[in-house]
Design a protein around this nucleic acid. Structure first.
Length: 534
DNA sequence: GCAAGGTCTAAAT
DNA sequence: TAGACCTTGC
């Protein structure tokens, strides 16, 4: 992922920072990097699409970080990945293949009764689907947090936002784990932000201006830097054998012209260099410079940087390598989170009153962007529902007679059985004939754990006496509390003080913890029993 | 000295 | 899985 060895190479230019330096500013967030991290804690539940609260734990993780930013008066702008661009297909296919292999293996281990091995493999198999992301979008909406779904790469969208003024929706920095952001020319990127807000920052201007740091980039500009990144190997194009980040840097700083670097490479690497490398190299550089992004102002697709006439002429096969063009209505529907960017299907959405529901219009597939329908989706006032239950998906497929969107349906039977075993009785529907719509509708009001938490925070604020430093998450009624108090900001080592009530609550928490441990153990034995029976 | 490949570890709770 | 670190071979 990202540019090979770039962060290691850039180490002298990395500065440790705390996120509070961006107080009062707008900061972009690469949603998928936090979604992936959050998904580790519930990878099996996500992979098997099991019912229950645990599956939504990744939302807790994400929102904890959002709340941390908000506590420091930072305005978060969350950016999601959209569709894949053609030149990333090889990388994506490989990732998909590996995840699938891990998931198949995990299922085998589970059937063998090897719970630990299965659990580890599920962590490797975890995949963030558009519908997983859509659950988060639903919460972001209800919490009034700005978000945008990029038409293609989130990195490109973040780079675009970084180039705008705050008044026009711009951000001053981006939080991500992906070194691609540097190749896209993001002016400031914060990597490895931890749960307390500490991270490592790279500021582009400082990189280009620093005279003392080695490697020096004083003779570089944005284009040369991007060229160096592509030469070292990126998701769009592997490097020529024998070329790593150090060689790439040497070549670019020596010749200071990407065409000249290509000529030298062609001469030096003759046999090892693929015949079409020069073409693919130019395309990869063009993706980093001119990717298609969504412009919220005009509500249409734009290029990260306008395409110069010279480049347009040199690209014989058009601009499809940047991802296909799409009409503004579709781009807007994707950006606003109403249309799945990879399947072009509308997410389930309901008007404010569910009495207007018409099941026949709930799940439209938009083949090649019918403009009028997409416009209706993008502008209609709606509240999002949850597309998460495999039961719902099964029914959805059966009712609509359309393609199965969620591939993991392969395991839906096993998941259903598992779910019966591991979910508490009161968390399951007792009415087997309950319709899919009822199930979805029932989920909507309870789906935002942060609403619940707010109530608890108020209760806690009313408790006068006890403020105590604790390092673990406090749980009340199975909902995580992480209320970072104002005074915590000044605490030692920037570690937040988590405010909680007195010993009574602590006793309750410990009881809950014991119960959770017990339920985890029960869950394990239930699964093992299930597989010993089948 | 460098690229490339291997191994280890943290990521979440 | 991806990054960090180490070893090997050119």
């Amino acid at each position: 992922m990202g540019i090979k060895d770039l962060l290691r190479f850039m180490k002298p230019h990395i500065e440790p920072i705390h996120i509070k330096k961006y107080a009062g500013k707008r900061v972009g967030i690469d949603a998928y990097s936090w979604l992936h991290k959050g998904a580790y804690s519930c990878s099996m539940e996500l992979s098997l699409n099991m019912e229950g609260e645990k599956k939504l734990q990744y939302l807790n993780y994400f929102m904890h970080r959002i709340n941390l930013l908000r506590h420091h008066k930072i305005i978060p702008v969350v950016v999601f990945d959209g569709g894949n661009i053609p030149c990333k297909a090889a990388t994506e296919n490989e990732r998909h293949r590996r995840r699938k292999a891990n998931r198949d293996l995990a299922m085998e281990k589970l059937k063998e009764g090897n719970f630990n091995a299965a659990s580890e493999l599920f962590q490797r198999a975890v995949s963030i689907t558009p519908s997983t992301a859509h659950q988060l979008i639903q919460i972001l909406r209800s919490e009034n947090i700005e978000f945008v779904v990029s038409p293609y790469e989130a990195d490109a969208q973040l780079a675009y936002l970084s180039s705008l003024e705050a008044e026009k929706g711009g951000v001053v920095a981006v939080i991500s784990e992906d070194s691609d952001l540097l190749a896209y020319g993001c002016p400031a990127v914060v990597f490895k932000m931890d749960r307390y807000g500490s991270g490592e920052e790279i500021v582009q201007n400082k990189v280009f201006e620093s005279a003392s740091c080695v490697p020096s980039f004083q003779c570089f500009d944005k284009e040369l830097f991007t060229g160096m990144c592509v030469l070292a190997g990126c998701d769009f194009l592997p490097s020529v054998p024998g070329i790593g980040i150090t060689k790439a840097y040497s070549l670019v700083s020596k010749y200071r012209n990407l065409d000249r670097v290509l000529s030298v490479l062609k001469f030096e690497k003759r046999d090892q260099m693929p015949g079409d490398y020069s073409k693919l190299f130019r395309e990869a550089v063009a993706v980093f410079q001119h990717a298609r992004i969504y412009d919220a102002d005009s509500k249409s697709l734009k290029h990260l940087k306008p395409l110069p006439e010279k480049l347009l002429q040199s690209l014989d096969e058009g601009l499809d390598f940047l991802g296909p063009e799409m009409p503004p209505s579709i781009a807007a529907a994707i950006a606003e989170g109403n249309l799945d960017p990879s399947t072009m299907e509308a997410f389930y959405h309901f008007p404010s009153s569910t009495t207007h529901l018409n099941p026949t219009t709930k799940n439209q597939t938009f083949d090649r962007f019918p403009r009028h329908e997409a416009t209706a989706i993008s502008t209609e006032e709606c509240c999002f529902s949850v597309v998460s239950s495999h039961k719902v998906r099964k029914e959805r497929t059966a009712v609509m007679g359309q393609k199965i969107v969620i591939e993991e349906s392969k395991y839906s039977h096993e998941a259903t059985e598992l779910e019966k075993l591991v979910c508490p009785l009161n968390a399951r529907s007792t009415d087997e004939n309950e319709t899919a719509i009822d199930k979805i509708h029932l989920k909507v009001p309870d789906n935002n754990p942060f609403r619940k938490r707010k109530l608890v925070e108020v209760e806690l604020d009313q408790c006068e006496n006890v403020t105590e430093r604790v390092s673990e998450v406090t749980e009340v009624e199975n909902s995580e509390i992480l209320c970072v108090t104002p005074e915590s900001q000044e605490s030692v080592d920037s570690k937040p003080i988590i405010k909680r009530s007195d010993g009574k609550m602590r006793a309750k928490n410990e009881k809950l913890k014991r119960r959770n441990c017990q339920s985890s153990e029960n869950k394990r034995s239930s699964i093992l029993n299930f597989f010993s029976r089948v």
